[in-house]
């Protein structure tokens, strides 16, 4: 096999430019797991983006299915209820011809008190080679990765990270922004930042992309991010972001606005007086959106509470790319499953 690739030159020839030194052709993907965006350098994020382009092309084919992961067992282990993300991963894996096993926590032995580590060992013994995992406790996928022989792809952990969402958000922004780049673009993430894994992963990818990132929401839901905001530009390869409760200042001239879901249970802890008050002060309405650029890109990771964090007419506005996010979600997840599938053993 290897000889054929080397000899024919066609399928496996690396970078075409003869001028690129041999050292630059080192393996371009080294991660066995993807637990958060923070471990990806910019060239790796770009690789995910170009691989996603290829997956979009696959999705446009008459038969939107390729055999890349044929014979691979992708086990989807969700400890938290989710339809959208789980189905997105499932479609992505099936488009790559993987064998998909779904385990929902409610139906597994989790409720019988089995530990996560035992569950991981069990699904591996049952043939899982790639594990897509969602868990309510921050950091849980790191524990899984430490005990799993294959690849772990984080489908969301606690408040911590949702890397595939951040990457599909970045892809969607680049797709809709003039010039195809978020560098220098004002991107606003609006809502419950404190409890949001989407916001946290987006901070890593958007500051790496050079966006002018603003996090906006009530002060109770922004607590603690000011220090991260102050530190971020000092981290190599990352730009600054800022934190504000002034919605007007955040939306002024915005290129992208992403509203986050407000969960009802936040009121129990005294974080919000009421959803009505939240909608009145921070809801994304057409009137407020007028302060943004006319061609602003409106996003939402879903599921939406229409009338709370986003007005129904904004959600369905032509400037809304929320359904594009869903389509791109499948392509990004295909790209990541594909890239992770090639790394064994020593990969990180």
């Amino acid at each position: 096999m290897t000889l054929e690739i080397g000899a024919s030159g066609s399928p496996a020839s690396p970078v075409p430019e003869a001028a690129i030194p041999v050292s630059a052709q080192a393996p371009a993907w080294r991660h066995r797991h993807l637990l958060d965006v923070d471990v990806l350098d910019w060239s790796e994020i770009e690789l995910v983006m170009t691989t996603t382009d290829a997956m979009r092309e696959v999705l446009a084919r008459p038969i939107a299915k390729v055999p890349a992961l044929r014979g691979r067992n992708v086990t989807i282990l969700f400890y938290e209820a989710s339809t959208r993300t789980r189905v997105s991963f499932e479609v992505a894996a099936k488009n790559l011809s993987a064998d998909v096993v779904n385990i929902a926590a409610a139906t597994s032995s989790v409720t019988k008190g089995e530990s996560l580590v035992d569950t991981i060992r069990t699904v591996e013994a049952l043939g899982a080679q790639m594990l897509v995992m969602r868990h309510a406790v921050s950091g849980a996928p790191y524990l899984a990765a430490a005990h799993f022989g294959g690849s772990v792809l984080n489908g969301g952990d606690g408040w911590h990270a949702h890397p595939t969402q951040a990457l599909l958000d970045l892809y969607t922004m680049r797709e809709h922004l003039p010039g195809g780049s978020v560098a220098g673009r004002k991107v606003v993430i609006l809502g419950d930042i404190l409890h949001s894994r989407v916001a946290r992963s987006n901070i890593w990818s958007l500051t790496a992309a050079g966006a002018d990132l603003w996090l906006c929401g009530p002060s109770t839901l922004l607590r603690g991010f000011d220090r991260w905001a102050a530190a971020s530009p000092r981290i190599p390869g990352h730009g600054r972001f800022q934190v504000t409760s002034d919605l007007g200042a955040a939306l002024a001239g915005a290129d992208v606005v992403m509203a986050l879901r407000i969960q009802r249970e936040r009121m129990a802890g005294g974080l919000l007086p009421s959803l009505r008050e939240y909608a009145a002060r921070f809801g994304l309405t057409r009137e407020r959106l007028a302060a943004a650029r006319p061609d602003v890109v409106v996003m939402h990771p879903g599921p939406m509470n229409e009338g709370v964090e986003i007005a129904p007419d904004v959600a369905t506005d032509p400037r809304s790319v929320i359904t594009n996010q869903v389509t791109n979600g499948v392509a990004v997840r295909m790209a990541l499953l594909y890239l992770l599938a090639g790394v064994h053993g020593e990969g990180r």
Binding site: S138, G139, D157, G158, W159, H160, A161, R197, R200, R223, G224, F225, R227, W228, A231
Partner: peptide
């Protein structure tokens, strides 16, 4: 609560 309230807990998504 899971971790000292501050920068690290914010980044790691742990309850302060």
């Amino acid at each position: 609560s899971e971790a000292n309230e501050g920068y690290i807990a914010s980044v790691l998504g742990l309850k302060g």
